[in-house]
């Protein structure tokens, strides 16, 4: 299934209310009753099904605290990072209080923070874990945070460590593979081996920035 946030046309950092609002607006737009007279009721019903699935998926993910990782977009650095004044002041007093006395591995709060875009807070908490407490999931979460911050090398390192430590876990592998794919250049940048054809929109940005590939007339 495609990105559920894209289906609803909202940002992944939208609040629950915003998600519900977007869902209601789309449900009204594509309600099969509205399409009854035009004979496109079944197509509208298909669209409604996609919208319902997207909504259910988002709500389920949020309830279970699973972080959202964009599937085909580049990470947005600086997006959520500059808000935390404690961090910018290099004030680590916060992290001390988070250094958990009980080594709780309940990362639910971390997942929630990541979903809400509170990356610096989440990172601060994770940094409070001692080296012996850092399990595969810790590396996975750090990888997710670094990716969202735009610290891609760091994200790559964390993700590969997570995969190494727990190769059976699908979501660690998924993050790792996504990063690797981006490093290959197929989603932007120079592909060293001749790969798939550029979409014309990619080509336009290529042309404008680099005056590249397309002087040949056919670049597939």
């Amino acid at each position: 299934m495609s990105d559920p946030y894209k289906v609803l046309g909202i940002s992944p950092h939208a609040s629950d209310d915003e998600v519900k609002q977007a869902y209601r607006a789309l449900a009204k737009k594509y309600h099969p009753d509205r399409y009854g007279e035009s004979g496109l009721a079944s197509q509208a019903a298909e669209k409604m099904k996609e919208i319902n699935e997207a909504y259910d998926r988002i709500m389920k993910q949020r309830k279970e605290g699973i972080p959202y990782i964009p599937e085909d977009t580049y990470s947005c650095p600086y997006n959520n990072y500059s808000n935390n004044t404690a961090y910018t002041n290099n004030n680590y007093s916060g992290s001390q209080s988070y250094q958990s006395s009980s080594s709780s591995r309940d990362y639910t709060a971390i997942y929630r923070m990541i979903n809400e875009g509170r990356l610096s807070e989440a990172e601060q908490i994770l940094n409070g874990y001692s080296p012996t407490e850092r399990d595969a999931e810790w590396y996975y979460l750090m990888g997710t945070i670094s990716y969202s911050k735009g610290w891609l090398e760091e994200a790559f390192n964390y993700a590969s460590t997570a995969c190494h430590m727990a190769p059976h876990v699908d979501k660690y592998r998924a993050l790792y593979e996504r990063i690797v794919q981006q490093r290959s250049g197929t989603q932007g940048g120079y592909v060293t081996t001749r790969g798939g054809a550029a979409d014309c929109c990619d080509c336009i940005s290529c042309l404008i920035c680099t005056d590249c590939l397309c002087n040949c007339g056919r670049c597939s």
């Binding site: 798939g196 054809a197 979409d199 042309l207 397309c214 007339g217 670049c219």
Partner: peptide, 19 residues
């Protein structure tokens, strides 16, 4: 299907560049 945009010259007015 693959679709490309390339730089070229206008077929009507060869002095003009176009996409």
């Amino acid at each position: 299907t693959p679709c490309n945009v390339t730089k070229g010259r206008c077929t009507v007015n060869p002095l003009k560049k176009c996409m």
